[in-house]
Amino acid sequence: MLQAINLSKTYGKYHALKDLNLKVNSGEIFCLLGANGAGKTTTINLFLNFITPSSGKARINNISVSENPVETKKYVAYIPENLALYPELSGLENLTYFTGLANKTYHKDHLVSLLKRSGLQKDAFNKRVSEYSKGMRQKVGIAIALAKEAKALLLDEPTSGLDPKASNEFSDLLKTLSADGIAILMTTHDLFRAQVTGSHIGIMKEGRLLEKFSSKKVSLSELEKTYLNHMNTAL
């Protein structure tokens, strides 16, 4: 569903991303680990066509993102670190608007059911988003993705700043979505969250994907050791 083929992005002489090859199939959760500046957000931005690649291709559902940006956006949903919603509107109103932009029209009851499914408390549906916590906003983001019936979900450090309980709830939600066949690409600093949530893990450094493996094959301590080894070794 999500595929990067020799994907690179340079800014002058600086390589933000270099020859990334990556594939996330339906039902998989691929967690990209790495320090700041490793190229994780650049990867997400390239899949979203927010920036254009210097070389290589990002493909969603086998369609080139840079060649068919409008078409590829039909299949993808996105939740950044701080999901920005309209604070003067309620969670339900935000969901209605963003769903409408994706050319989906649902009855209010269905949208309410999506908010319930994303785990947002019922009494928050009609409250202004300005009163929401970050975790609540992320849940609205999930509801937006559900309403869009996206086949792929791009998450840029979505659990950063969430308390452990909220992070755990979020992980469970992602697992439910992947079980429904959604391909998920998530960037994170959190090794524990990556190991618990992801089906696959990749470690990035200075724009390169150094290693990728199945999360089932490594324990948290092995993951930590591998990660630190990479971080402490000069490229």
């Binding site: 979203l48 956006k73 920005a84 769903t99 932009l101 050319n103």
Partner: peptide, 14 residues
């Protein structure tokens, strides 16, 4: 500034 533009574009608005 709020970054809502990202979500708007992802949802398909040009």
């Amino acid at each position: 500034e709020r970054q809502t533009i990202r979500l708007l574009l992802v949802q398909g608005a040009t």
